[in-house]
Design a binder for these strands. Structure first.
Lengths: 350, 350
DNA sequence: GCAGAATTTGACAGCGCTGTCATTACAAAT
DNA sequence: ATTTGTAATGACAGCGCTGTCAAATTCTGC
């Protein structure tokens, strides 16, 4: 098909009735095609779709939600300390929503404030105005209370990077364990044999997967390896403190893998504080390829997660489920190892 | 057929007709009160408002936009490299929108791609579906083409931190010049006499204001002072490069003020590269108090801008204009000097 | 072949609100 | 007292779409 971009000159508010007239059918038939209702003939579909394309018709979501039962609104829920992560998710989800004529809301659920508060916040979101679905991000995705509550209220949801509750909802993730294993292998191949790990919060399932994948590969490489670990809560300060702990142990590691970039940046700061050069004295690797990965020196070697795509995919699944070809319930997207300058061979060779 | 009225406590499904019945008036009168139309008696207002409160009524925005001419959608437009800044604006604007039952869209306008492209992108936003207003953020706010275009199309807009085109729209800002002057004074009081400045992009008006305020105060303190400057484009790498330039001049400054935090972080990295300790050898001050301010070591001494409040205020002005007490057209919010650990007395005393 | 079922389409009535116009009430002007 | 004007309210018709129901059409099986 040629790229027939119909110009919007003067256009702007074509109605369903016009499309119907153009296609020589009733407006209800147009509605049926748009909503992919069952029992419509292929020829009807063809005619209507042609008319829609010719008139460059876009359904009015206000009218749709007034007449129908759907709100054309989905919400993206967060309980995450990193604005970089949130921003990417919001961006990806937002674009996908706009592309489908949906509205996107986003809300923060502070699960630190206890179970009941958490559910109250959830209630506020779902009762406020009936929503068509919700995208959950870590660490909300692994909170059984939240999942129970959503199921109880019959709210459809899609989860990004869940660890627990497999099968309770469609999900999008990357293979965190494999990515962490890649890092382990990378560091090993660089010659490092004394490697430290900075863990994320316990509530964050993906952090655990990264840890497991990392440790498992290291154990496979050397069953007797000892990996020193410290917790950093996914925050810069936590990473700095954890890095300090590792670096001042009796056997300081020559390489440290932090489960996210913020903590990796903190580890670099801890190195600087001790006059240790990165990567010459200590190699540091992060995870996420977030904004901060290139806002430290040296730029972080890290794992790129296609967060925007993941969020967009989550929206797609939320919106298209029940339609013709049902998309896979558990989508795993590709990560990418990003080699920058924060890790180097050991012992330093040049 | 039995309508299972799964009642929600109060909220949920009350219609305007119910409110009207409750108040003993016509539904149109309720509508008038809600929309603050002229020529309504105080007694009517009182009755209707009481009924609204008792029934916990919330107007349905889908129905409102279908029936009326408004879309209940505002857009926030960006052309900004910093996700931290965007995130804060989005957050503040979003909350304000939700509080008023409005939808928020946000879009990026890439003005690097030339004038016509820039206007095309703007057109796509305002033609897509008629919007009720637009919030402009720097550096879009000072782009005369954008302003002209918006005015031409009769789109109302509010600007955050504009420099040029005073009076062309309501605006929200902080006193960038005064804040920068505070920093100059602070550094001066610390004993620094050789001070460098890292500038933001030329297109970003506020960066210029910071520069001017900073320089002016320094000149007032010492008319013969020489301030070395470099450009950093508001980015980490740019700041690092600019810092490097300053630091390797024949007369390296003992203190550097960067026009935003990202560049300040870059300056710190440049110091580290040269084995210069911050703040002992070099003091560094940033601007914005963004996420990165506490994601570097030492944490940045900087200026806190109430970005979320500014964005929320922008939305308020956009939505309430024309209503009773018209808010001030040029709102100036307070900044706050945030003293952390990246600046110290010179010469170092302890 | 024909009753009964399933498929495919259209007519029509609202969804909850606002714009328009008609109507009332009452002050000011003639 | 009558006209004129304006403030204050209501009746009613849609906005653009979908749900319901009925009608037309095409299949089934026996």
């Amino acid at each position: 098909m040629a790229t027939t971009t119909v110009d919007v000159s003067g256009n702007g508010k074509t109605t369903m009735a016009e499309v119907a007239r153009r296609a020589g059918v009733s407006s209800k038939s147009v509605s049926r095609v748009i909503n992919k209702e069952p029992h419509i003939s292929p020829s009807l579909v063809a005619m209507v779709e042609a008319a829609i394309a010719e008139l460059n018709y876009v359904p009015d979501s206000a009218a749709r939600s007034l007449a129908g039962s759907r709100s054309f609104t989905v919400v993206v829920a967060f309980d995450n300390p990193s604005p970089n992560y949130i921003m990417k998710v919001v961006n990806g989800a937002y674009r996908a929503c706009v592309a489908h004529g949906y509205h996107m809301r986003f809300d923060t659920i502070d699960s630190q404030r206890g179970h009941s508060s958490c559910l109250d916040q959830l209630d506020a979101i779902i009762k406020n105005s009936r929503i068509d679905g919700i995208v959950l991000t870590p660490p909300l995705v692994d909170n059984p209370l939240v999942l129970d509550h959503l199921e109880l209220h019959g709210i459809r949801f899609v989860r990004i990077a869940p660890v627990a509750g497999k099968g309770r909802s469609p999900s999008i993730s990357i293979d965190d364990a494999a990515a962490a294993a890649d890092i382990a292998q990378y560091l090993w191949d660089l010659g490092h044999r004394n490697i430290g790990f900075v863990n994320g919060p316990r509530t964050h399932g993906a952090a655990g997967k990264r840890r497991d994948g990392f440790l498992k590969r290291l154990c496979a490489l050397d069953p007797h390896i000892e990996v020193q670990q410290a917790d950093g809560a996914f925050l810069f300060d936590g990473g700095m403190e954890a890095g300090g702990k590792l670096l001042s142990s009796k056997r300081p590691p020559t390489a440290i893998f932090a489960a996210n970039d913020d903590m990796a940046a903190g580890v670099i700061a801890a190195c600087a504080q001790r006059q240790l050069a990165v990567p010459d004295d200590v190699s540091v690797v992060g995870f996420d390829d977030s904004w901060i990965a290139t806002s430290v020196w040296p730029h972080l070697t890290t794992i790129y997660q296609p967060i925007e795509e993941m969020a967009a995919a989550a929206i797609e699944i939320l919106l298209h489920r029940g339609a013709a070809g049902r998309p896979p319930e558990e989508l795993v997207l590709n990560y990418r190892f990003v080699e920058r300058a924060s890790a180097a061979p050991y012992p330093a060779s040049g």
